[in-house]
């Protein structure tokens, strides 16, 4: 495999993990515009642990993911009680606060960025992405996953059947935070350098858009969306500036024509039938 292909695949693996981080709250109708902020928490805390405290890479990255998840729980608790669109606003603010703090935090290099010593190649990162996908498959088939979909479509009725809506959403948001932290930790230890500017609201927005583009109804949607977003510039090589234009136009178009995203649950069931017949 050429270095170029490996680089693309690594990026794809990280983007897929980040997509699942955004997918869990999205499946319950909650927009998390702070995914990049949670990635930054995971990236910086794991980098500090492996750089300054000589933690092994798996331990450091896992700890970074836990930090991000803990923070997600702390923020999500009060905000999710209010419901509605407030989570989008709160996570957006969170993202900017995190970025603002990191840029001013001289211990980790401030605006100049922070070099990460330990290095991870494609194989462990791809393994993590596969693990996250399996976890998503598991959760998607669980009662939690079912309740999330139910909340997304009809919060009121779901609550009348005894589902604790804020708690369920908090669980999804927290697990999402852990996954974002993992994606951030992997990112830092692959590129060997992190800076606050990278983890912008724009990154959070593109993650959310790619998940919605792929479709939130099935476990496959986020992976499809992440692949679309990551591979788009490769398809339109030489027109890199057009990448976001095409991506955004695709999102608007798909939302206008079929707001459920590229792959729906009904599509998946049809696909299964075809495969079974063949």
């Amino acid at each position: 495999m050429s270095g170029y292909t490996a680089a693309i695949l690594t990026l794809l693996a990280i983007n897929i993990i980040a997509a699942y981080a955004a997918w869990l709250p999205l499946a319950a109708g909650q927009v998390n515009l702070g995914t990049a902020g949670f990635m930054a928490i995971g990236a910086y805390s794991s980098a500090v642990l492996s750089n300054e405290f000589d933690w092994s890479l798996p331990m450091a990255i896992a700890a970074g993911a836990v930090c991000a998840g803990g923070l997600a729980m702390a923020i999500g608790g009060p905000v999710l009680r209010t419901r509605g669109l407030y989570l989008a606003l709160a996570t957006l603010a969170f993202n900017e606060v995190v970025r603002g703090i990191l840029i001013n935090l001289d211990v980790v290099g401030g605006a100049a960025g922070y070099p990460v010593i330990g290095h991870l190649g494609l194989a462990p990162i791809a393994a993590c992405a596969a693990g996250v996908f399996l976890l998503a498959l598991w959760l998607g088939a669980s009662r939690l996953g079912m309740n999330l979909h139910a909340i997304e479509q009809d919060e009121t009725v779901t609550a009348l059947f005894g589902v604790h809506v804020p708690f369920t959403q908090l669980a999804a948001f927290t697990i999402g935070g852990v996954l974002a932290g993992l994606a951030g930790g992997l990112y830092g230890h692959h590129f060997s350098f992190i800076e606050g500017q990278h983890f912008s609201v724009l990154l959070s927005v593109t993650i959310v858009l790619s998940v919605v583009l792929g479709g939130t109804q099935t476990v496959w949607g986020p992976a499809i969306g992440a692949a679309f977003f990551t591979l788009l510039p490769e398809i339109f090589r030489g027109a890199a500036a057009w990448r976001y234009v095409l991506f955004a136009a695709a999102v608007i178009l798909v939302m206008a024509i079929r707001p459920q995203g590229l792959l729906t649950r009904a599509d998946l069931m049809r696909l299964r039938r075809v495969v079974r017949l063949a």
């Binding site: 669980s142 009662r143 939690l144 079912m146 309740n147 979909h149 139910a150 479509q153 009809d154 779901t158 059947f161 005894g162 589902v163 708690f167 369920t168 669980a171 109804q217 459920q260 729906t264 649950r265 009904a266």
Partner: peptide, 24 residues
């Protein structure tokens, strides 16, 4: 819930009998 199966919709009705947070 439109994009869940009939069986899943019916199982939603049994939420209160499904057990605690870990069972979720």
């Amino acid at each position: 819930i439109g994009h869940l199966t009939v069986l899943e919709n019916v199982l939603l009705g049994a939420h209160v009998h499904a057990g605690g947070p870990l069972a979720m």
